[in-house]
């Protein structure tokens, strides 16, 4: 018969196996090093080339440019949203003329670059100045800002019409039938049953569209509108200081990231009833 007289003394756990130095870790370290070097370089460039005089001179310009960008984007997104409603319904309607018109509109504005559309409206309509003057519309098309607003509105209307159409068509057929079975009139069914579900589907694409508009709005600088990009180009052409572009890049990144996070929060908030 045997019995235990001594317990095995507690021992330290075996040492963790050494982390292998894989190719992934090698490249990861290299790329992180590159980013770090870039960040340090940018920091040194800002601190080294810091000029309070320039900052005082161009800072207010940047702020007004930011205001112009934000105003342009928000106005055109809202106006485009208004135009997109009839467009989306025309696209879904059974009338072939309406649906073909809407299809052509959307195809044109989604198939050509925003810059070309801007040139077409700003420079292209400028060649009809005599006719426009006769109709009393010249004051509108003379101004680059108005032309940019018009172009952006028409452009985003096409994209938003597609978003809206896709979202409305994504609502299951049973929802229509259920509303009809309850005896709801078509209009009530649309606004109380279909649209709320469609807008949840459309939320993310709408956010992407606004971000695309913020980024796309930089091109109005080419037609002499002094938005954030325009002020940046002006500051760069006067000072030849690469910092000018750096500040603009930071501002654009900040805008986009803020909007992206806001949208992520909005989405989790609005879809919390769908969480299982």
């Amino acid at each position: 018969m045997s019995y235990v007289t001594t317990l095995i003394p507690p021992q330290a756990p075996p040492p963790a196996p050494p982390k292998p130095f894989t190719a992934g870790r090698f490249f990861g370290n290299i790329f992180m090093g590159v980013w770090l070097a870039l960040a340090v370089g940018i920091f040194l460039m800002i601190t080294g080339g810091w000029d309070p005089e320039k900052f005082a001179k161009y800072g207010p310009n940047y702020r007004s440019g930011l205001g112009v960008t934000l105003l342009l984007v928000s106005l055109s997104v809202v106006l485009g949203g208004l135009i997109s409603l009839p467009l989306a319904f025309a696209r879904m309607s059974k009338n072939p003329v309406l649906s073909w018109f809407s299809y052509g509109y959307v195809y044109f504005f989604r198939g050509t670059p925003l810059l070309t559309q801007l040139f077409l409206i700003y420079y292209g309509l400028g060649s009809f100045s005599a006719e426009l003057k006769a109709w009393g519309l010249w004051w509108f098309f003379r101004d680059a800002w108005n032309c940019a607003l018009l172009t952006f509105t028409l452009n985003t209307a096409a994209y938003q019409a597609e978003i809206l159409r896709g979202a409305i068509e994504s609502v299951a057929r049973g929802q229509h039938e259920g509303a009809a079975a309850l005896g709801l009139p078509k209009k009530v069914a649309f606004f109380k049953v279909i649209l709320p579900q469609a807008l949840i589907v459309a939320l993310r694409p709408y956010g992407n569209e606004i971000i695309l508009m913020i980024k796309g709005s930089a091109i109005v600088a080419i037609v002499t509108v002094l938005d954030l990009m325009g002020e940046t180009r002006l500051a760069f052409s006067r000072t030849f200081d690469p910092q000018a572009y750096l500040w603009a890049a930071l501002m654009y990144l900040l805008m986009v990231e803020l909007l992206r996070n806001l949208w992520a929060w909005l989405e989790t908030r609005l879809t919390r009833h769908l969480k299982r």
Partner: peptide, 22 residues
Amino acid sequence: EKSLRLSANIYTTLFRGLPELL
């Protein structure tokens, strides 16, 4: 590898957030 993921995410955030013109 964490550093690899992080550097790739920085890359995407940067170049998706900046306007193409800029």
